[in-house]
Design a protein around this nucleic acid. Structure first.
Lengths: 158, 158
DNA sequence: CTTGAAAAGAGCGGCCA
DNA sequence: TGGCCGCTCTTTTCAAG
């Protein structure tokens, strides 16, 4: 992972529709070595996959909710089942086990309040939880999948 | 946006490395109309872009933090500047203006505690804030960019 | 929408420095 | 390693049913 790899990742995190020819030119390499680097980054698992990013509003998903969960005391086995159940819910975009007062944090995306109410009921009915706090987003100011790469000028999109 | 478009989006949200030929076959269409639908979805902005998803651990980013911010009372102009400043920080993956007790929520990804400390100092030194709460993730259980599409069987990846 | 086909371009691999 | 030059396969566009 040298500086060239970081350049490649920076560009590919912003756009994969670009051709290898143009990518190679931008990082100052010819096509073949550039292509080989991409293959290597994929083989190493640095690049996990290539996906299309969909605009949630355009498909009717207008409500983002951050959910903090405190679990009641339970066995490791029980928590395992909880993790599987929550992971399987398609409204759950992100799901983290936390340190501190909150045990789990979710980011949930649904159509509207009514849809969130249904989600919430499914969540609490299936599993007994000590405390669930829902915080509702009014406005998405920033949302990115591109990580901050060391020493990379942020967002050389143009 | 009919059922076929939803199928296309479901597949493309999971993987864009697939060829049009295979995609067309999977949705039960021939190449030409399938390709036209994709073009239309991109023109409409339903598909925003195609990107590479990078594994954060593989590039040394091991710490995810959820940050809740309460701002002191300030003018709209001041909040505008705040939003721009925070959006420009590359460690900030997501940034929402919230309803209720918390004014803003961030999801921040950094290398480690030391890096978060630096981020935190930059955040609070530049702008006076009433309250900032950091919650640290121990484990990423689920993380996806694929939204729940209406009536789509979740994750027909295979 | 389908099939079929053709031109343009990209991915991919060998071989040499 | 990187660079050049092919071969092959897609993507993309066009007709006509």
């Amino acid at each position: 992972m040298d500086a060239v790899d970081i350049k490649i990742l920076t560009i590919l995190q912003a756009d994969t529709a670009i051709s290898i020819a143009e990518l190679a030119q931008r990082v100052g390499l010819s096509q073949t070595p550039c292509w080989k680097r991409i293959q290597r980054l994929e083989a190493q698992g640095v690049i996990e996959k290539r996906v299309a990013l969909v605009n949630p509003e355009k498909i009717g998903l207008g409500l983002t909710v951050f959910v903090s969960i405190e679990t009641a005391d339970h066995s490791g086995h029980w928590l395992q089942r909880f993790a599987e159940f929550v992971s399987a819910m398609p409204e759950v975009m992100e799901f983290y086990r936390m340190a501190g007062d909150v045990d789990y944090m979710l980011r949930v995306v649904v159509a509207d309040m009514a849809a969130y109410d249904l989600f919430y009921k499914r969540l609490i009915e299936t599993i007994p939880l000590k405390n669930v706090t829902s915080r509702f987003a009014m406005q998405r100011v920033k949302s990115t999948t591109a990580y901050a790469l060391p020493g990379a000028a942020p967002a050389l999109t143009a």
